[in-house]
Design a protein around this nucleic acid. Structure first.
Lengths: 365, 365
DNA sequence: CTTGGCACTCTCGGCCCTCGAGTGCTAATA
DNA sequence: TATTAGCACTCGAGGGCCGAGAGTGCCAAG
């Protein structure tokens, strides 16, 4: 049986009210709020049909109705009115975006943190960059025992490493190493670097001190890092403000699950979000057992370099889909605008320097 | 009144048992477990004195005893036997350490994650590095529109930035910029870089395109970043496995507090942990209102370069202090061994290359 | 000083009851 | 045929009551 117009209105009202209050919704409430001119008895009849159609259910005989996952599905796909964010909200979001993204240190984790703070649900962000290669090596000679490897990558990031040597090395050797690596180790993928090619390079520069190996392993390391998906999870604690996680055991289970970036990285559903769209996974839609009682909303954005980034939010099935979708959509669009658009410089920056950078200093022995 | 030997034993038994079970401890339990040959009636007398001395309290008249913060204090300072970690545990910890720290990407967050997973409490890690300066600039000319800035810092990390120019620049200009910056902007702190000095440099190289400003702002940026304390919080969700956080409101409050690195960074108590010691802050010892019901255990370790790092753990006052102290101590010692010891290379590595590195690539427009 | 004994206190869990929200059904009505 | 008012029914939440059990404090005897 198809949904009559009135059934749709009633279903929408039930879902909206349940999202608001987290309590089963009764016929009387709907008669009052939904504003269709009929009595609660009529609504009751409709409700019980919606139950038998599988869109609603009753926790027990004398309780109100609660949406089923199918009910949410219909709501999300057809009934929900696209929430128009108020001007203030849009402003606020843009302000946060500007503030957070001015220091573009780590887009992934910033996008995640932003989504979490705007939606008040735990958020995650993923970026799986396209395979990168090294475009060019530079070896900077510091002193007889020290040099720096600088590698410029095909995606225009730069990586470096400081090498201290227990033995002395001449500037000429550094020179030779540099040209051999530029000749043989640029524009190739990780798997093309083999012990064989390394031995060959070693012989070519007459290296008896293992320098070739050091540079090669640095190359391997940054190549494999460059293709690893970056993930971040932010604001997991926000789960606790949701009444459905009043039970600490439940809360703990889900929080532990989503707090582990490995889990997120391995979610298959994450990898088929199409283009600009927003994807909503409701309860059992989720593949992971731990998420079967929760919902996930995902939005993708253009990171430039043919990369798409993904931001998402996790919450109870009783999630405020329309607000979340609106906010994620806004963030995704804003990010696409800022980062995307191929290699053309973003408007308004034409006469400024365009900079890609690599930062962060660490130690290693 | 001083604590008699027997009172000490009884107090220790109460605290230990309460830590184990999270339930008030009765006189009978102690008579049986503590193994001092006297009856529960005797213990009762002693217990009530311990109550009037302020080391124990009763939730209600007919319940067992629970330690007060002062009780924990005495326990931690005098009564607790230093837990000897079993061989397996030590092995396990060392194994994790080796695995996690082999990729020394980010010591701070790795140390935090490690402490959390070993103790099963939320953990935090902080490192406030000593002020660093730039030792040397290298500008790598890529093409007429592109160059890379490489800055080697006094703490032997290397930072870099890729600069795209909307105009063409000759290799000679890059050359000149490099020598001016090496002459005027090395070995100085951030505040010594002023608009004035930048203007001077600009004139010196005859720069009309703002290149000087770009390099100078990069210098400012990395100098200020280098002196910012790095912080990380890991495993906040572990709080939920503690019975004292069965109440979601409490759990949420504390989790939100500790999940925010800014809060952690600003904890004053964090900054006066002396040398090798382990510091235990019990309930009201904490300055932050949010931590008054919880305890914090802190251990510091030597990161080399005269820097001390800090790892800590947050939990209910009913924390297993002796296990936590033992584990944090072990981690701190292991880290000190690996990272510390001034600039002398760690033993066993003498004939290997010693490497300090800087990695991580990012974008900026 | 210690200890067995005993009365007392307080919490916890189970049980019962009432209250109220909400339903489903029926019969009357438009 | 669709709607509605009315009414009996169901079920859970909350409150009060009670008994069991754990633990205490005190007393008098060893």
């Amino acid at each position: 049986m198809a949904l009559t117009e009135r059934k749709k209105k009633i279903l929408a009202a039930v879902v909206a009210e349940y999202i608001r209050t987290a309590e089963p919704v009764g016929s009387k409430t709907i008669a009052q709020t939904a504003g269709l001119g009929c009595s609660s008895a009529t609504i009751r009849n409709e409700l019980s049909e919606l139950v038998s159609m599988g869109y609603l259910e009753q926790p027990h005989t004398s309780a109100g109705r609660v949406p089923t996952p199918q009910g949410y599905r219909i709501y999300v796909n057809e009934l929900m009115q696209r929430q128009r964010l108020s001007l203030e909200e849009t402003e606020a979001i843009n302000a946060s975006l500007n503030e957070r993204l001015s220091q573009l240190d780590d887009i992934v984790s910033n996008a995640g943190a932003l989504a979490a703070s705007l939606t008040n649900y735990p958020a995650m962000a993923i970026a799986a960059p396209p395979p990168a290669t090294i475009k060019r090596f530079d070896l900077i000679y510091i002193d007889a025992n020290t040099f720096i490897i600088v590698a410029m990558m095909s995606n225009d990031t730069v990586r470096n490493k400081l090498v201290h040597l227990p033995v002395s090395v001449g500037q000429d050797m550094i020179q030779r190493l540099s040209s051999v690596f530029n000749a043989n180790f640029t524009n190739i993928t990780e798997e093309r670097i083999s012990p064989l090619t390394i031995r060959a390079a070693e012989r070519a520069v007459d290296d008896t001190m293992g320098l070739t190996g050091v540079i090669a392993s640095f190359a391997i390391e940054i190549l494999s890092e460059a293709q690893a998906a970056e993930t971040c999870v932010a604001g997991a604690n926000r789960l606790l403000s949701q009444p459905e996680f009043r039970d600490p055991a439940k809360a703990h289970a889900l929080m532990s699950y989503i707090s582990d970036a490995e889990h997120i990285k391995n979610l298959p559903e994450v990898y088929d979000v199409d283009g600009e769209g927003i994807k909503v996974l409701i309860g059992p839609d989720n593949v992971a057992e731990e998420l079967k009682d929760s919902s996930v909303v995902l939005a993708s954005y253009d990171m430039g370099d043919d990369t798409r980034g993904l931001i998402g939010v996790v919450g109870p099935t009783r999630m405020d889909y329309s607000a979340v979708a609106a906010k994620l959509g806004l963030i995704a669009r804003a990010l696409s605008e800022r980062l995307g658009g191929g290699s053309a410089p973003p408007k308004g920056l034409d006469n400024k320097l365009i900079i890609k950078e690599d930062t962060n200093g660490q130690h290693e022995q």
